[in-house]
Amino acid sequence: MDVFDILDRLVAFPSVAGKPNGDIAGWIEAYLAEHGAQVTVILGPEGDRSNLFATIGPTDIPGYILSGHMDVVPAGEPQWNSSPFTMRREGEYLYGRGTTDMKGFLAAALAAVPMLAGLRLARPIHLAFSYDEEVGCRGVPHLIARLPDLCAKPLGVIVGEPSGMRAVRGHKGKAAARVTIKGRSGHSSRPDLGLNAIHAMSEALSAAVSEAERLTHGPFNSAFEPAYSSLQAGVIAGGQSVNIIPDSCTLDLEARAIPGVDPASLLAPVRAQVEALAADGFLVEWTPMSAYPALSLPQDAALAALLSELTGEAPLAAVSYGTEAGLYQAAGLEAIICGPGDIGRAHKPNEYILASELTACLRMIEALGARCAA
């Protein structure tokens, strides 16, 4: 199978985040085993989805990880011109959910396996494929925790998120949480007998807006756009009818932090305001939804130099989107982003990747293999 056949097969699995992934994980496991890779299936605590870790070459020598996620975002938009889970090719354009984010990278890595297996690698190349990245990087921590048992400490991790095959050294961290406030319902003509959850939530929302404004004043990191950390209220819901005192309201928040700032700490002022509402008789809940740290690989890191050599271009300092790379770095491993496609095409109808981008990624992995065989 070539890279296009493999991508076609991967797209056909509707591996939406938060759902069981046995079909796609099982197919990849069988493919890798067929080509002689050492494969470990790492079942997550959910019990119905797994990470995969595979090694080509020796396990007791430090090597490199090619990291990607198997899950995709939903594809329910009506603007799709064809079935999102059937790859459609029109010349250079390959359409389908996940083609860019990020089954294109998975396909290139898998297509390279037969070649890598034939090289008798002196340093191993590992494949680390995770689940539920799109809902807060929930799967990969379980994989990272197992690495000491699976291989010698890797020299570096290449996370293949779409970057136009330009390596990237940094991204912001993120934390998201859901606020739930429960009050007491009643007829709107007697507000004195109820507890209006939406009115109470306005205090949490005001704290979020105030904190968002404060963050625009720094600290700053000029590698990012915007150059400061940020906070926003993304979703708010509550109430049944205009003449009913709303007894429940929810608010979803997210914070994105420049390196050196803990993303969760940015939400702390809002959390404090929410918890203070308990004194007024409201029941309040603070539910973390997702969190991952920022990535900040030094410009003079060995992994940055390697990717400069493999791609022919100096790595970019940073991108605005987040990845699993920060979690690898937090675990003590050098990590960098480099993958085919453009993040601007992701999470949209008619998502696509170019055939030339897949080929370029495959060439990069083959060049890495040649280095590990030397």
Results as ranks from 00 to 15, higher is better:
residue 198 I to V: 04
residue 8 D to F: 02
residue 303 L to M: 13
residue 361 C to M: 15
residue 297 L to W: 13
residue 66 L to H: 15
residue 108 A to G: 08
residue 291 A to V: 14
residue 38 Q to M: 00
residue 238 G to H: 02
residue 46 E to H: 03
residue 140 V to Q: 10
residue 72 V to P: 04
residue 207 A to W: 04
residue 190 R to Y: 06
residue 105 F to E: 05
residue 322 G to L: 10
residue 251 L to W: 02
residue 118 G to I: 04
residue 308 S to F: 12
residue 58 P to D: 01
residue 337 I to C: 15
residue 34 E to G: 07
residue 115 M to I: 11
residue 62 P to T: 10
residue 53 F to D: 00
residue 170 G to P: 07
residue 145 A to F: 01
residue 136 G to Q: 06
residue 80 W to T: 05
residue 293 P to M: 14
residue 41 V to W: 04
residue 347 H to L: 12
residue 274 V to K: 01
residue 159 V to K: 12
residue 65 I to V: 13
residue 267 L to N: 09
residue 286 W to Y: 14
residue 63 G to C: 07
residue 300 D to T: 07
residue 324 E to T: 14
residue 190 R to A: 05
residue 154 P to M: 09
residue 155 L to I: 09
residue 246 P to T: 09
residue 354 L to C: 12
residue 343 I to K: 08
residue 2 D to Q: 01
residue 260 G to Y: 03
residue 344 G to A: 15
residue 3 V to M: 10
residue 128 A to M: 04
residue 292 Y to P: 09
residue 338 C to V: 13
residue 208 A to D: 03
residue 48 D to W: 09
residue 36 G to C: 02
residue 304 A to T: 13
residue 186 G to E: 03
residue 284 V to G: 05
residue 146 R to N: 03
residue 90 E to P: 10
residue 294 A to L: 09
residue 131 Y to R: 03
residue 285 E to T: 10
residue 5 D to H: 06
residue 195 L to M: 05
residue 24 I to R: 05
residue 197 A to W: 00
residue 115 M to Y: 15
residue 200 A to Q: 03
residue 180 T to I: 06
residue 53 F to A: 06
residue 17 A to P: 02
residue 327 L to V: 11
residue 111 A to N: 11
residue 127 L to I: 04
residue 177 A to R: 04
residue 306 L to V: 08
residue 152 A to N: 05
residue 286 W to I: 12
residue 351 E to S: 08
residue 287 T to F: 03
residue 251 L to Q: 05
residue 53 F to C: 01
residue 177 A to G: 02
residue 56 I to H: 10
residue 130 S to K: 11
residue 36 G to P: 08
residue 89 R to I: 15
residue 317 A to E: 10
residue 114 P to D: 08
residue 249 C to K: 03
residue 264 A to Q: 13
residue 125 I to N: 12
residue 344 G to M: 15
residue 297 L to F: 12
residue 167 A to H: 09
residue 49 R to W: 04
residue 276 A to V: 15
residue 5 D to I: 01
residue 352 Y to R: 13
residue 261 V to Y: 08
residue 31 Y to G: 07
residue 352 Y to F: 15
residue 106 L to K: 01
residue 206 S to G: 00
residue 269 P to A: 04
residue 214 R to P: 03
residue 325 A to P: 14
residue 70 M to H: 02
residue 144 I to L: 09
residue 343 I to H: 11
